[in-house]
């Protein structure tokens, strides 16, 4: 009797979950593909080949690559600091790392405008630097602004993956290596890195996936279509244009983003599987 009722419960839960996933995820995603191809492959190809789409793809990839590189370096430094050293304010720092998780990305974007925009307090400073170096860097409504906003919203991903691993490893193995005369770099390379490599890669994938799809923060600091727009912004612009053609184009570009997300998902699962298999 007991067994039978738990079996019923199991199938009920499976049914509910499957229905939910179908309705909320699978059907809408298929809808994207269906609508993208509604006007035929030729229209699909034209939409993807449009100048604005290619520009948006370029900006998105650039922002993603830079965000991943910067956050990998920052994430390693921050997690090393938090787990291997004791200092005043350590808890504050590890809370600060999580801020992008809890703050709406749009606020992050607006904060950049308030800081570096025309009326922002850091604007004269930036102008001074530009003048001195003879450059023309703008930190709002520009590609650098898009990159900065992307970095901001994705920076906890990597450190959050590594910190628990480093805590679990403890300091013993590193001390043992140090006792035998190994340098800090050798210790990192031979002892610490093998322990965190899968977690690090996992964090990189999550970080990249989030960077592709970021909308709010980027929306606040990017206003020039064809120059500083990313894929999500381009989709929004196409969709908002409202003509039948542009809506189909919006779905075509969306399918590109969905494809990139699926690749990330598959990579994530491979990494998870390998990480578990290698876990000693």
């Amino acid at each position: 009797m007991e067994e039978r009722s738990s079996k019923i419960a199991k199938w009920c839960l499976i049914g509910i979950s499957v229905a939910f996933f179908l309705l909320m995820l699978i059907v809408p995603l298929f809808e994207v593909l269906y609508r993208a191809l509604a006007d035929g492959l030729e229209a699909y190809g034209t939409a993807l080949g449009a100048k604005t789409t290619l520009s948006a793809l370029k900006v998105t990839l650039l922002a993603t690559v830079i965000a991943v590189v910067v956050n990998t370096v920052f994430g390693l430094i921050a997690s090393w600091l938090v787990t291997k050293f004791d200092f005043r304010g350590k808890n504050v720092l590890s809370t600060l790392i999580d801020i992008p998780f809890s703050i709406s990305p749009v606020i992050a974007g607006l904060a950049y405008i308030m800081t570096f925009g025309r009326t922002g307090w850091a604007k004269p400073l930036l102008d001074g630097i530009n003048e001195a170096l003879g450059t023309d860097i703008a930190l709002v409504f520009s590609v650098p602004a898009v990159v900065l906003a992307t970095i901001f919203v994705t920076f906890p991903f990597i450190s959050r993956e590594i910190i628990p691993l480093l805590y679990a490893q403890g300091r013993d193995e590193e001390e043992a290596a140090a006792m035998m005369g190994a340098s800090g770099f050798t210790i990192f390379r031979k002892i610490t890195f093998p322990h965190i490599r899968w977690g690090l890669l996992y964090g990189v994938i999550l970080c990249a996936a989030r960077a592709f799809g970021e909308f709010g923060a980027v929306y606040a600091v990017s206003k020039a279509r064809g120059k500083t727009f990313t894929l999500p912004l381009e989709i929004d612009a196409l969709y908002m244009a409202g003509s039948a053609d542009s809506i189909t184009q919006a779905f075509a570009v969306s399918s590109l983003l969905v494809g990139m997300a699926l690749i990330m998902l598959i990579l994530k699962n491979i990494v998870e599987y390998r990480g578990k298999r290698d876990d000693l």
């Binding site: 013993d172 193995e173 001390e175 043992a176 290596a177 006792m179 031979k190 002892i191 322990h195």
Partner: peptide, 11 residues
């Protein structure tokens, strides 16, 4: 130095 839980390099 021999550590309490040996601290062998697990990888």
């Amino acid at each position: 130095f021999v550590f309490q839980n040996y601290a062998l390099f697990r990888y």
